[in-house]
Design a protein around this nucleic acid. Sequence first.
RNA 1: GGACGGUUAGCUCAAUGGCAGAGCAUCGCGUUUACAUCGCGGAGGUUAUAGGUUCAAAUCCUAUACCGUCCACCA
Length: 804
Amino acid sequence: MRKHYPKNLKKWQRFWEKEKIYKFNPQKKGKIFSIDTPPPTVSGKMHLGHAFSYTHLDIIARYQRMKGKNVFYPFGTDDNGLPTEKLVEKENKVSIFNMKRQDFVKLCQKTLKRIKPSFVQDWKDIGMSCDFDLGYSTIDKEVQKLSQRFFIELYEKKRIYQKETPTLWCPQCRTAIAQADLENKETETVFNDIIFKLENGKEILIATTRPELLSSCVAIFIHPSDKRYKNLIGKTAVVPIFKQKVKIYNDKGVDPKKGTGVVMCCTFGDTTDIEWYFVHHLPLKISINQDGTMTKIAGPFQGLKIKEARQRIIEELKKQGFIRSQKKIKHFVNVHERCNAEIEILNTSQWFIKYLDFKKDFLKMGRQIEWYPDFMRKRYENWVSGLRWDWCISRQRYFGIPFPVWYCQKCGEIRLARISDLPVDPLYSKPKTRCSCGSNRFIPETDILDTWATSSLTPKITIDLVKDEKTKKKLFPMSLRPQAHDIINFWLFYTIARSKLHFNKIPWKEVTISGFVLDPKGEKMSKSKGNVVAPQEVIEKYGVDVLRHWTAKASLGEDLRWNEEEIKASKRTVIKIWNAFRFSFMHLESFKKNNLIISNLEDEDRWILHLLEMTIKDYKVYFEKYQFKKSRETIDNFFWKNFCDNYLEIVKPRLYNNDVLKESKEAAKYTLYLCLFSIIKLYAPFMPYITEEVYQTFFRRLEKEKSIHLTLLPTINRNLVNPKIKEKFDNVIGIIGAIRKYKSEKKVSIRKEVNKLFIKSKNKEIKKYFNLIKSVMNIKSIKMKDKNVSGYFEVNSSIKIKII
RNA sequence: GGACGGUUAGCUCAAUGGCAGAGCAUCGCGUUUACAUCGCGGAGGUUAUAGGUUCAAAUCCUAUACCGUCCACCA
């Protein structure tokens, strides 16, 4: 038998794939457990955060499978839209703005083809037990078809509209974005007090961080009850440099304490400007282009980038004496989460999904779903309550799912593709019939769909991979949506929103949210900080099972700090498993599985089997609430403390000694087998590789399933639950512990023979275990004592011992 | 400014009103026929602070402080 811990465990991955161990079989009996697996965005490599949250998910999936559920567990990748484009630009060192659309799209496809296989392999390597045959990519033809069909459906339901309106805009990526794509960034900037002159020559001061927007200034606002400026309402002021005349209005939206209490309104600096623009029917003056340069109305500053223009305009203001004072401040600005560029609000024509009127329904649906942990629901509610924009789904980019839309060149009417023609790319195809105006010339829509507009359909995408209609119905709503907390506002919310819009049903019954992996100081891991730990290296150094066992140190919703000492502890557990099984099976070589004869069991067998039953019970109770951290603790504790440290030590004399009755020896072996098989099963969701190795090496000849991962978790055997034995036997464990302590304090070896042991206790039942204690602790004679003798060790309140 | 989570041993975390525990680290001991990647043992606590409820509070209530996350503010 191999002595050393087996190294080549990766072979089991091939075994599972070849034998289709994780294949979803619609015909299989048992309740279906369907999982809306997150499709990772294809990037260079899987990072540790992925390994962490996907392992959590996989632990749950494996538990459900071993409980006998028919697990529907697909695996897809998200590979279109802005994130993919950014990756392709970086990988190939190109810019989308210097390339032809066609060439860029081809490059995207080529790059994906190159990097995707090894990217997906990372997921297989962490032991994901998905049915990889239920695979998809969000750019697949079938998915395009579905996404476009759903677009048309919503359009026909009047849930989609196109509108020219102030839109969140990323000048770096040169596209519209959605509210969810925003992030906050603290930046240092200069607050400028700028002098505006009134027509009567008087001056007012306006504080602004964005003087480059002066040419867009269309009005000035003050608070109606601000006494300082009361007489200014209705007057006209002149904008410095650009000299346009603007009216002074009052509005309660002004905060008199901020800046000078006088605000300029530009189209558009922020969301308040949009509000004022509509409420006060202000003119539109656009000074920023879609590429982040200044427009014609910026006059001499035309063509400059925003920040350059700001600098130059400040200089000019100073020169002309319009700046009273300046101070540096730190404030938060909205940036695009994909590129960190400060966003603008531009008036553009975009496609929107109308859903703000459904806020209450979204909240209601959130309450119909079970959240693990429950408090994550609050984050969702917080986000839904704060929604202010309809969902902008159009992106002015190249690589993604096209809108199935054309416009009539003559009358401008919108023409949608026919469902039967999907998927279409309007750039390369045309409507088959004329427009109602008679024209047959059409202009294609060139925008692409927001990537979330497709990934929010994963429940439908994955269920459609199954062909059998009866099964499909059983799969929806899905059982579980697992994900990390960073995309509650994105993927989770959008999926609920789409489910409301299309099906008016919750998409899943339960949601589990994992946290993040942090560096040892508790900070986020990032390349720029240089504190990134690569999961591939961890796996290389310690093994997958170790990484997986470690990730279960965190509960759902909790962050976990990277700690190599803890990884080493998990490594020890894996090695301990191997050694414990190797040792045990030395004594089980000729073991045959007959019926267990309970009357043959010794008390130590009954004791460990009782503890085993309790372990199985607790393990399952915790898992049912997705508290796999506690399930892990439960099995770890049973395995190390009860089984290895105590039971194996206690049972050794019986296994080695040939004088022992045959029945007793058989009972010991049976107990061993029962414990071992249970232990390996309880560990299997956490450590799929080593448990498979152990199963194939030791159990396969006696068990019928071809993989440990096809076995069922042990069920409670009531005949083995025996609290009375536990009570009695805890005294034995206590006495053994006291003798160990004695030997440790006397600085002698545990094996060293003890001459005499006196036990003082009213409980005479302990006598029954004298022989056991003798053989385990190497003691010559044990006697009960009634008289008080000095120098006793107290084992517990009822037992004292003295060793001579 | 709003919402949420947290603060317990050196570190990471348990303990759902009833004797504050575990793993790691530390220290001491031990060649014990599965495992030195091991075993046994010791030390280590005013449970963030201040009040309150209770026979009893880490746990419930109130307030404060600090840490973290999300959102809002962006003149």
